[in-house]
Design a binder for these strands. Structure first.
Lengths: 328, 328
DNA sequence: CGCAATTTTGCACGCGCTTTCAAAACGGAG
DNA sequence: CTCCGTTTTGAAAGCGCGTGCAAAATTGCG
């Protein structure tokens, strides 16, 4: 039963008051240099570290940030999560990880709020206006990633889906491909909707319309299945545009199984440029979704709002670039 | 500036003492049914939720568990993390996510301990005896995943690497393959060491010795590079055993680039059976590492020790199975 | 050396909750 | 109606720390 060493212990051992110990560990507090060093050395000797839970009780800050993602095992989510964690911890925040998988977002956020998180970064789930308001009411700012609320009711950062699709459409049209199909992701997903819509619009600018479309669940496995259906439909497709890389990789597999030559007979494009898109049988032509930039932008938005709660909500659109590889 | 509603507010509104509010939210506390329901309804109306930070200050429990992983963007880590998070949150724990990427494990754990985590699950980094002791001293049990300390100084759960390698060796030897190479992962990694050693031992039982070996960093990209070197060495290899799936997938790419037929000319095996191993050009023959079971076992060990701090340390070896697909 | 201006320090209160402990309310037996 | 054994309740003491405030120590200057 190990008794944790507290500020009182250090104070006693250092022959000062407990307040001094507290100040010694508070940057910018009123304390003489000598004393601070002395306290620090004694603390070190005793193995003392301020109890951040107790500290969080008084101050307005716990340093905890709720991070909500979907299925972590999906490449993009994992990739984003990695950058978020990195960004948060180098800025002195601690990520409280929540994964929505069937569970309700509202419930998860409630639980996180009970831990007095300083804020939340949500990259998954359906975020309603109501949820956003609830967070605001609890004083925990919310930043969305990859989804924006109508009337931009919440700070958000999202890649420029429209531009990405414009680039892809231009490329495909430039190659003279006209028999195209769209492989979307889970319905009710912001990325899916925005990308799908942007694709049709951009294609229209080139006088092309989609021959058909199907829907997967953003997983590689679903790419294989739905891609196969697309190819088996006998439409003579010469291009399949996918809502993300994982599905595109799946489509590539489906094409290979059928002996279809990529990119000669069929072009396949992804979205995100996850690590792994460049690898494999046929390096993917895709749109680079800058996750690192995204993660940092999200954190910046969060910090800005923490500092100025009243500021106008802001939606950051991070720029994308076309990554031309061999699949298209 | 939203004032959080506290137990006092509820007490006042419900006409009871604050102690009653606390008890109303403490399962099994001494309180009449009527009163509990009454308090609950008032709390609901006011939008009250117990402040878990404050609760953690008094009680011995914060409900926080430090989860340490390596690079989340690696399939196995992401997969494991997903299961860990799921397991933890369904049991009422909250994962505090730490990613070691260059940063020191000791430092990370120190930081987590400052948050009074109830325990830590570590699936990455070099865990020294010293670190383990430090955690124990802080009263936060440590459970290792995929690594065990000498003399099993810490609770740990790890898949049966030896058995996995035995199965692989038997399979390869049974196919009459004798010109084999080993593609290991990062040195100083427990999995790498145990798997590599077990492979040689099992191979020896079949009268086979490795022709050569190289080392990647567990990433698919490194599989492409090192696999390529292996194939270009002109050794006439007929099998490459990889320390994990990602590298095996990379080797498959390297082989395809060189027009080498798998499995006819070359067998390639992985380890873990991550989602994605079954997909792609050539479904991977590999060893299934049961992550879900692993995650649950880790949590069980943690809970057991939380309940009985003095119990003997235990190392759980979760069973593996050979997954025969086409790559070998 | 004296006095005002300026750090530096300690006391004590509070953050929101849990948890003894003793008092109050209850309930049934005599 | 009383007495005693049981719940049920409220008052109060923390949990470990931050911080405003006033006292103490230090400094600068005459």
């Amino acid at each position: 039963m190990p008794m944790r060493v507290t500020a009182d212990d250090v104070a006693r051992a250092a022959g000062v008051s407990r307040a001094m110990v507290s100040r010694a560990f508070t940057p910018g507090a009123s304390i003489s240099m000598r004393k601070r060093e002395h306290v620090h050395s004694v603390a070190q000797r005793l193995g003392y570290r301020p109890n951040l839970i107790a500290r969080g009780l008084t101050g307005q800050r716990t340093g905890l940030i709720a991070v909500v993602v979907g299925e972590i095992s999906r490449p993009y989510e994992a990739w984003l999560l990695e950058h978020l964690v990195k960004a948060l911890s180098t800025q002195g925040y601690q990520p409280l990880l929540l994964a929505v998988q069937g569970g309700s977002l509202t419930e998860m956020l409630d639980h996180a709020l009970a831990y007095q998180v300083d804020g939340a970064i949500v990259a998954a789930g359906l975020v309603s206006r109501e949820i956003a308001d609830r967070c605001r009411a609890s004083g925990a700012p919310l930043v969305l990633i990859g989804r924006v609320l109508e009337k931009s009711a919440t700070d958000a950062v999202c890649c420029d889906n429209k531009e990405g699709m414009r680039l892809l459409a231009a490329r495909l049209a430039g190659q003279g491909r006209r028999r195209l199909a769209w492989l979307g992701g889970t319905l009710d997903t912001f990325s899916d909707q925005e990308r799908g819509r942007a694709l049709e619009a951009s294609l229209a600018d080139h006088g092309v319309t989609l021959l058909t479309r199907r829907r997967g669940d953003f997983s590689q496995a679903s790419g294989v299945i739905e891609g196969g259906r697309l190819l088996d439909a006998g439409l003579g497709l010469d291009g399949i545009i996918c809502a993300n890389d994982a599905m595109a990789l799946g489509v590539l597999d489906a094409a290979a199984q059928r002996g279809i030559k990529v990119p000669d007979d069929l072009a396949v494009t992804g979205f995100d440029d996850v690590p792994g898109a460049a690898l494999g049988r046929c390096p993917l032509t895709t749109v680079r979704n800058p996750v690192s930039e995204t993660a940092h932008a999200a954190l910046e938005l969060l910090k800005a709002r923490l500092q100025t709660p009243g500021r106008a909500t802001q939606v950051v659109r991070v720029g994308v670039t076309l990554v031309e590889r061999t699949s298209a």
